[in-house]
């Protein structure tokens, strides 16, 4: 949860607006399915459960996302090898670079919808 708050602050600092935080899989999946946002930061381990089902939903909806994990890129499911990964701990600049790497249109300038469904750790 502290890490989620840190990421929230980092995103705010980068000029994004955080629409919500999900600490666990069911709520993260619900947000991924129904909320309006244009970016997700997705922790792989949500209270002991892997968040790949959430990634599946985001992929289906065409919403870009960045994995954040203590496992590093080695912890990725085969289906998500090559997707952007931030290895904890990371800096606000790393997060900024990862978001920039997604090539979102005017996301930062407009300081609009950004979200982080799934930042699970306390």
């Amino acid at each position: 949860m502290t890490i989620a708050m840190l990421v929230e602050d980092m995103l705010t600092e980068l000029g994004h607006q955080v629409i919500d935080l999900a600490m666990r899989l069911p709520y993260a999946a619900e947000l991924a399915r129904t909320a309006a946002f244009d970016l997700a930061i997705l922790d792989i381990n949500l209270d002991g459960r892997k968040s790949f089902p959430v990634a599946d939903i985001l992929k289906e909806r065409g919403i870009p996302f960045i994995f954040a994990t203590g496992y590093g890129a080695a912890g990725l499911d085969a289906a998500y090898v090559g997707y952007p990964v931030l290895t904890k701990p990371f800096l606000v600049q790393d997060l900024g670079a990862a978001i920039a790497g997604l090539g979102l249109d005017g996301c930062r300038d407009d300081a609009r919808h950004s979200t982080s469904p799934g930042h699970p750790n306390p």
């Binding site: 840190l6 496992y71 701990p89 750790n121």
Partner: peptide, 8 residues
């Protein structure tokens, strides 16, 4: 890693 991130 998580503890480091929490520390951060």
């Amino acid at each position: 890693k998580n503890n480091l991130a929490m520390t951060q």
